[in-house]
Design a protein around this nucleic acid. Structure first.
Length: 759
DNA sequence: TCCAGGCCCGTTTTT
DNA sequence: CGGGCCTGGA
């Protein structure tokens, strides 16, 4: 089991029971160490499978962990605490729902449900949603929860925040009444359950001997607190992560957890996995060099036993269109060289960039697959069907009630629903319970709907899950509705797919001999654990609905195995490919303009670039466009500063490298003609290029002034600076200027008075 | 109640 | 430019 590991890997796997931080670089065998550690602990008899708690962020990672552990050691994973933070908290809350103050059949709101719930709340309480936009309220509430804060804990230093806190309180009341729990609430409730309930806490603390955490750099404050509490009974925390790959600060991840953990727990026990088994030397050295520009790293330098490999190919094109066309040609060349399409990845900073690339690939007939977009359980028709199903389990679920009450349309309009809402509020009941108080035609339509819900509950009470789902979907009128729609065929197909999903789910649950999806106890355990009883009562429907909420399904749009992979850099984390294109290497795009004025934001962008680079095994490309269509305007940008942070020795420019030295990265837009690039190796004849040979206009003229990217300018108030981006024309023209003293600013060229001082 | 056209906005995303 | 959302008219 451990003889194939390198020495730091083996050291990590065989550590005595103590807290440890494993700094696992990209491609260093992180998952292997984590899973081997689990298997080793069990096999050496140091812990029973039930004494382990292993937690990940995604279901995919959790599945992979289970798969790899069981392939090393054929153990029964049932009853083991392996899963996502949310999945494990869900399980804990179901088991101890009374202590947690929840109905056992609580529903889980996904992000969209939560937003709908907040909108409904604002409306019911007459809160101005211009002043308190639902999205901001959602961010406020989730932000507070992720910090472990209930309304009284939130600092409200001004009237705006005080009102936000009031809304937070109202929202909590609403969720509690409806028996629903949002994603951050799963974690916070589970945390509070453990911290306030001594018997429950000591039960878990006594049971759990080893806590293993994957992607530790992505944990938020609350998750870390939860882990510390769980391990509080003397368990060892084995935290694996890479601070250089922390790219989720925007959703609450706190890289600081890593250094805090080292300081508070791991002390000296930090193991670095620095040998990389993925990439060739130039690629790794480029990544290493780039990331040294960040401060406050825990520190790590990747190395490989493979050779130097190829340099990174760099291509600069006049436009985003030309970039895409070049990319297609290069991809085709790779494919005709015998490379597997699925081993070619095209990465970009933002989803908007995929359009041009997709168009070019499509026109050239290259099969591709875009990651991202709507997932199965997030589709409109699927959410409607789930809405009906949720009403079967809980008619007081107002979010679901509102979602389907008039879908398909049954003559229940906004006014009727407003009336219903008023009644519900006045009598402090659910919408469902308030139906009888709404008079008139609207009321009669409502009661018909209410009767439909009641009748379906009755009819499906005794049905097995798949039949139940089938019956509810058939009777909901959804299929009939979509049959009217000439583009409804896909939706109907998805509705049928829910029935399949339910059948598959039920089958899996039966095979494990347990109520669908939720594993209760390890049958091999010496005796049933009274602390964790209570899950058996969870209906298959409830279990299926939890499953749907916690696992939204596959994230890839188009099918096709043998396809070029298109995705954002974020989506590429954890993946690897033989050949990788990093596109849009421009200031304002990568690093993104919203991050460049904030040092920590810029460092996160740099980590993102680090992640992008380290995806590549053999071949890596950087591409950039001098001009790009963005928000309906042509924008001109400088080369990304990150390009200058990679030593020249690792780069091979396929188009002439222009402009000034890297130490002073500047963009001199000039007269490069797009068809002069060649490929490395010399044999490749210059392929025909579709790039227009004449240069695009690269400047913006306003009045008598001609602005260009890279120019030096002076502003009366902001001082001297450099033009780093231009967009628009005439009165719409704007310039992004990096001022020496005051940072980057965007100025309207028609208004701001600028003197051109050079360039 | 429903639909169409206008308007606004525009980074990354898992649970 | 393009998509999502909202409002106003039928």
């Amino acid at each position: 089991m451990i003889d194939k590991l390198n020495s730091p890997q083996r050291e990590a796997v065989t550590l005595p029971p103590q807290h440890a931080l494993v700094l696992a670089g990209a491609g260093s065998g992180k998952t292997r160490v984590l899973t081997t550690r689990m298997a080793w602990l069990i096999q050496t008899g140091q812990v029973s499978p039930l004494g382990i708690l292993a937690v990940t962020f995604t279901n995919k990672a959790a599945r992979e962990m289970v798969g790899r552990v069981t392939s090393i050691l054929p153990i029964d994973i049932r009853g083991m605490w392996i899963g996502t933070f949310h999945g494990l908290c869900n399980r804990m809350l179901r088991a101890h729902h009374r202590d947690a103050g929840l109905p056992q059949a609580f529903h889980i709101l996904d992000t969209a449900d939560q937003l709908a719930s907040i909108k409904r709340l604002l409306k019911a309480n007459g809160i101005d949603d211009d002043k308190y936009p639902p999205r901001d309220v959602q961010r406020f509430i989730n932000g507070a929860k992720e910090e472990g804060q209930r309304p009284p804990d939130v600092e409200a230093y001004d009237s705006f925040r005080r009102r936000m806190v009031e809304i937070y309180t109202l929202y909590e009341t609403q969720c509690q009444r409806e028996g629903v729990v949002d994603f951050p609430e799963l974690l916070l409730r589970a945390y509070e359950l453990l911290s306030r309930n001594e018997p429950v806490r000591s039960h878990y603390q006594r049971r759990i001997k080893h806590v293993l955490v994957d992607e530790f750099q992505d944990t938020n404050t609350l998750q870390y607190k939860w882990l510390r509490l769980l391990a509080g009974g003397g368990a060892s925390i084995f935290a694996v992560g890479d601070d250089d790959q922390s790219i989720y600060a925007f959703r609450g991840a706190n890289v600081g957890n890593m250094s805090d953990f080292e300081r508070d727990y791991a002390h000296g026990t930090v193991i670095r996995l620095e040998q990389n088994y993925r990439s060739f030397g130039h690629i790794l050295d480029a990544a290493n060099a780039l990331i040294t520009h960040n401060n406050g790293r825990l520190g790590k330098n990747l190395w490989t036993e493979q050779g130097e490999g190829e340099q990174i190919r760099v291509v600069e094109q006049p436009s985003d269109l030309a970039e895409a066309q070049w990319l297609v040609e290069e991809v085709r060349a790779l494919i005709s060289d015998g490379r597997d399409r699925s081993q070619i990845a095209v990465l970009y900073r933002s989803n908007a960039q995929s359009r041009v690339i997709e168009h070019a690939l499509f026109s050239a007939g290259v099969t591709y697959k875009v990651y991202g977009g709507l997932r199965f359980f997030e589709r409109q028709e699927v959410k409607h069907a789930l809405g009906y199903l949720r009403l079967m389990a809980n008619p007081d679920d107002d979010t679901s009630w509102m979602r389907v009450v008039n879908f398909p349309p049954r003559g229940i309009g906004a006014r009727t629903l407003e009336l219903l809402g008023d009644q519900a509020k006045a009598y402090d009941t659910s919408l469902s319970a308030a139906v009888a108080r709404v008079p008139g035609k609207g009321g009669s339509n409502l009661s018909q709907f209410s009767m439909l819900v009641g009748r379906l509950s009755e009819e499906t009470r005794m049905l097995p899950l798949p039949e139940l789902v089938e019956h509810v979907i058939a009777q909901s009128g959804l299929i009939a509705h979509y049959e009217q729609d000439r583009e409804g065929a896909d939706r109907i197909e998805n509705l049928n797919e829910i029935i399949n999903a339910a059948a598959a789910f039920a089958l899996e649950a039966n095979m494990s001999g347990l109520p669908a999806g939720i594993v209760v106890q390890n049958p091999t355990a010496a005796e049933p654990d009274p602390m964790e009883e209570g899950l058996g009562g969870l209906s298959p429907l409830m279990a299926f609905l939890s499953h749907a909420a916690l696992e939204a399904g596959d994230n890839q749009a188009q099918a096709g195995q043998d396809a070029v992979q298109l995705m954002t850099v974020h989506a590429a984390k954890g993946l690897e490919f033989d050949a990788v294109f990093i596109t849009g290497m421009e200031e304002g795009l990568f690093p993104h303009e919203n991050s460049v004025n904030d040092p920590s934001g810029l460092e996160e962008e740099r980590r993102l670039m680090y992640v992008a680079i380290t995806r590549a095994r053999e071949r890596l490309y950087f591409s950039l466009a001098q001009s790009r269509m963005l928000h309906g305007q042509t924008r001109y940008a400088m080369r990304s500063r990150f390009l200058a942070e990679v030593p020249e020795e690792h780069l091979k420019w396929l188009t002439p490298k222009q402009g000034l030295s890297d130490s002073e990265p500047r963009w001199k837009t000039s007269n490069y003609s797009g068809d002069t690039y060649g490929r490395q190796g010399g044999q490749a004849a210059p392929r025909q290029s579709t790039v227009p040979s004449k240069m695009l206009a690269s400047g913006v003229t306003v009045g008598a002034q001609q602005f260009r990217v890279g120019q030096g300018v002076r502003h009366a108030r902001f001082g001297e600076g450099t033009v780093i981006g231009l967009s628009g024309t005439g009165m719409d023209a704007q310039a992004q200027i990096q001022f020496r003293e005051v940072g980057a600013k965007t100025l309207a060229l028609g208004i701001a008075k600028l003197d051109i001082i050079q360039g």
